[in-house]
C-alpha cells in the first residue's frame, strides 16, 4: 500500500502536460481536486467535510488564470490554502478566549477520555496567570483513579490553587461550591476539569449538561486530540448539542498528526479553535494560528 506522497508533487504530476499558460479548465480542476480530497482524508479531515470543501474550492479554481509566476499546481494549492485558512476562521476574533464577564469567569473543559483536559487545565491556568489573572482550578473528575491527585500535583507545581472535595462528592456540587470558594480567594478565573466521557454515554453527558446549566460558564471548550480520525465530527456535534461549545483546544500538536479533525469540527459546528497544545510541559500552550494549521493539513 502506497505511502502518502506530498500533495504538491502529485499536483505537479497532474499538470505536467499543461503549458502553465491560460486558464484552468473544469477537467484540470476536477483532476486536481481529486488529489486534494485524498490528501484531506489522509490528514483526517472528515469525508463529507472534504467533499464539501473541495466543492467550494472548485468554484474558485475554474477559470483562474495561471499566467503569473505560479505553476497550475501552485495556483490550485494556493487557492486551497486560502480557502482552508478562511474555513479555519481566518483572523476572526472568535479564535480568542472571552473572559469579559463579571468575575469569576468560568472556563469549562470537556471531551473524550485521554484527550488532554487535565493537562490543558493547568496550562491554561499558567497562561492566564502570566497575563495577570488569578486562576483557580477545580477537580471535577470523580471517576478516573488519581484524577484529583493529578490536578493537585500540577497545581502545586504551578502554585495555582486547586479546589477539590473528598472522593464520592458530586461533580455538579463540586463545581457549584468552587465558585463561592473562588470569590473567597479572590480568584477571577475558574477552570473546571471534568472527567473524560464518551459523547454517547447519556448519563455522563447529562452530568456536564447539569454543570453547564447550573454554572453558566463563560467558555465551554472541547479538548480534542489532534490525532482524532473521522469520528471527530460526530463527537463535536454531540458535545456541542449537549453543552453549546464556545471553542475547542487542539492537543498533542507536537507530534506529526496533521490535525484535520479541527477543520472538520470547525466547518460542521462552527466552533472556533482557541488554542493548540504542543507538549507535556506547562508552557506548551499556543494561541491558534489558522495559517499554520492549514499548511500542516496540506503537509506543506
Amino acid at each position: 500500500m502506497a505511502m502518502f506522497e506530498s500533495l504538491s508533487k502529485r499536483l505537479e504530476g497532474i499538470f505536467s502536460n499543461l503549458s502553465g499558460q491560460g486558464k484552468l479548465t473544469e477537467d484540470d480542476v476536477n483532476a486536481a481536486l481529486r488529489e486534494v480530497r485524498i490528501a484531506l482524508i489522509e490528514a483526517d479531515v472528515n469525508l463529507k467535510v472534504a467533499r464539501q470543501f473541495v466543492e467550494r474550492v472548485k468554484q474558485k479554481a475554474i477559470g483562474a488564470d495561471v499566467m503569473g509566476s505560479l505553476s497550475p499546481a501552485q495556483q490550485v494549492l494556493s487557492i486551497v490554502n486560502e480557502e482552508l485558512i478562511e474555513v479555519l476562521g481566518g483572523t476572526d476574533d472568535k479564535n480568542k478566549l472571552d473572559l469579559s464577564g463579571a468575575p469569576p469567569n468560568v472556563i469549562m473543559l470537556v471531551g473524550l477520555q485521554g484527550a488532554g483536559k487535565t493537562t490543558t487545565a493547568a496550562k491554561l491556568a499558567n497562561y492566564l496567570r502570566k497575563q495577570g489573572s488569578r486562576p483557580l482550578m477545580v477537580a471535577a473528575d470523580m471517576y478516573r483513579p488519581a484524577a484529583v491527585k493529578q490536578l493537585q500535583t500540577l497545581g502545586k507545581q504551578l502554585t495555582v490553587p486547586v479546589y477539590s472535595e473528598p472522593m464520592g462528592a458530586n461533580p455538579v456540587d463540586i463545581c457549584a461550591n468552587s465558585i463561592a470558594y473562588a470569590r473567597e480567594q479572590a480568584c477571577n478565573v475558574v477552570i473546571l476539569d471534568t472527567a473524560g466521557r464518551l459523547n454517547i454515554d447519556e448519563r455522563m453527558m447529562n452530568e456536564i449538561i447539569t454543570i453547564r446549566n447550573r454554572i453558566q460558564p463563560r467558555e465551554v471548550l472541547l479538548v480534542a486530540d489532534a490525532m482524532t480520525g473521522q469520528e471527530a465530527v460526530r463527537v463535536a456535534q454531540d458535545f456541542n448539542q449537549a453543552v453549546s461549545l464556545t471553542g475547542m483546544i487542539l492537543t498533542k500538536m507536537d507530534g506529526d498528526a496533521r490535525g484535520g479533525a479541527a477543520l472538520s469540527i470547525r466547518s460542521v459546528t462552527g466552533v472556533p479553535v482557541k488554542f493548540m497544545t504542543v507538549g507535556e510541559k506547562m508552557d506548551a500552550l499556543e494561541p491558534f494560528y489558522p495559517d499554520r494549521l492549514a499548511s500542516r493539513i496540506l503537509g506543506m
Partner: peptide
C-alpha cells in the same frame, strides 16, 4: 492505540 485515532496510528 486509541480507537478514535485516525491515520496517525500507522505512523
Amino acid at each position: 492505540i486509541d480507537a478514535t485515532t485516525g491515520q496517525n496510528a500507522l505512523l
